[in-house]
Design a protein around this nucleic acid. Structure first.
Length: 360
RNA sequence: GCUGGGGUAGUGAAGCGGUCAAACACGUCUGACUGUAAAUCAGAUGGCAUUCGCCUUCGGGGGUUCGAAUCCCUCCCCCAGCA
């Protein structure tokens, strides 16, 4: 069992907790939200702008960076931190999500997953070992195991069971490869490895999977395969079910979530880490959160002459600088990318501020 | 003034006797996005009713025809060339 890298500092509302996660790139206060920088950059934002939203950790993607520009290029240029100008910790997703999101162009085998690279037409194999190698080459600080996300066959018990079992076998292969690749590194130099729990909407599978992952030599436990199309009630039921089963000494990461209310619910069910494309994707599409977890669509005509900021109570760069809803609507209408950037900063700040509420 | 080409819904632009309230694109309005194939996608877009449907449109006016945006006459306006 690896030395614990997580320290719980205090308990809060319901089952929430705050603590410190130690990574080789620095300490991180939990709970926290990670902006998504799939291809090495948070779309439309400079690292300093991302940092100013309160973000501590960035999430990048193994599959996409492997396809382009390739981990060898990044390694040669000093690693992902130097390449993308992000000094803080970086978590890389393993490519496991692409098993789900690119379902139409991939083939799952026991060896790994074959993806058809849409740009070149070539087949690309991502196996548990390959995923580890790529993430190590990228210089990731938090490495995710390569999992099999069964997605919406959530109700198909056989497929779900198969995915869970394969995820477990792949986790063991990931650990072996990770250990091999990091042999000789000091504890303080070694990246963290997180295992991913699956099980769809089947509680027994979820329980078994969580127990399995927590029995392994991993630094953190991730909940995968939620928020992929099931109802909110189904997701909440599962988070409620899992809450008492977590290892108290390890950090817990709910992958791909999400909406402010979902993050609140999850923090109060013991989750420490989140990531999601919503703040940035929605931001680019004109959708912003305002006090009360409400959503506004800045494209709407009612904002055409609205001189106010997105949210009077917000302390983000966009709101503090006095950019009006009218300006933002106009910039969205004329498709100026500045609109998406300003809205993304606002949304990221909204989620980071939400997490900060649980830190004291 | 002559010759030729045009005037179609917010814009551009199809249609050239019936299946035309009128393709398509843009614009506009609304919605959706949860480990990013996503600065993307979906729907609506003459009026009213919004279930059947009804009403008013294709520069203006007048004809032909069972029936016209589509054919004829006339007027108005644009564009090109020639005077």
């Amino acid at each position: 069992m690896p030395k614990s890298h997580f320290k719980e500092l205090r308990r809060g509302k319901n089952q929430s907790r705050s603590g410190i996660l130690n990574t080789r790139a620095g300490k991180v206060l939990t709970p926290f939200f990670m902006p998504v920088a799939t291809r090495g950059a948070v779309k439309g934002l400079q690292p300093a702008q991302v940092s100013a939203t309160g973000a501590q950790v960035l999430l990048s993607n193994t599959y996409h960076l492997h396809i382009q520009p390739g981990e060898q290029v990044i390694k040669k240029l000093g690693g992902l931190h130097q390449f993308s100008h992000w000094d803080g910790p970086i978590l890389t997703d393993s490519g496991g999500f692409q098993v789900f999101s690119l379902a139409k162009i991939r083939k799952i085998t026991e060896e790994g997953v074959y993806f058809k690279n849409l740009a070149s037409g070539r087949e690309v194999l991502i196996s548990p070992e390959k995923s580890m190698q790529i993430q190590i080459d990228l210089g990731s600080d938090i490495i995710m195991a390569f999992d099999d996300l069964s997605g919406l066959s959530l109700t198909d018990r056989r497929r779900t069971k198969e995915a869970v079992e394969r995820t477990h076998r792949w986790l063991q292969r990931c650990i072996v490869e990770f250990t091999r690749l990091t042999k000789g590194q000091k504890e303080s130099e070694r990246p963290l490895l997180f295992g991913i729990q699956q099980g769809g909407l089947n509680k027994e599978l979820r329980r078994t999977s969580l127990e399995f992952v927590q029995s392994q030599s991993v630094n953190g436990v991730a909940i995968g395969g939620l928020a992929v199309g099931e109802t909110r009630k189904e997701m909440y039921d599962m988070l409620e079910f899992l809450a008492p089963l977590y290892d108290p000494n390890r950090v817990r990461y709910l992958m791909g979530v999400g909406e402010p209310k979902d993050i609140r619910f999850s923090i109060e069910r013991g989750i420490d880490m989140f990531d999601c494309v919503l703040p940035t994707r929605n931001g680019r599409h004109g959708s912003v959160w305002v006090t009360g977890d409400k959503k506004l669509n800045l494209n709407n005509a009612i904002f055409a002459k609205d001189a106010g900021p997105i949210d009077k109570k917000c302390d983000c760069h966009t709101c503090k600088s006095g950019y009006s809803r009218a300006l933002l609507r106009h910039l969205f209408k004329v498709e100026d990318p500045l609109a998406g950037s300003l809205a993304s900063m606002h949304n990221l700040r909204y989620l980071n501020r939400l997490c900060e509420e649980y830190k004291t």
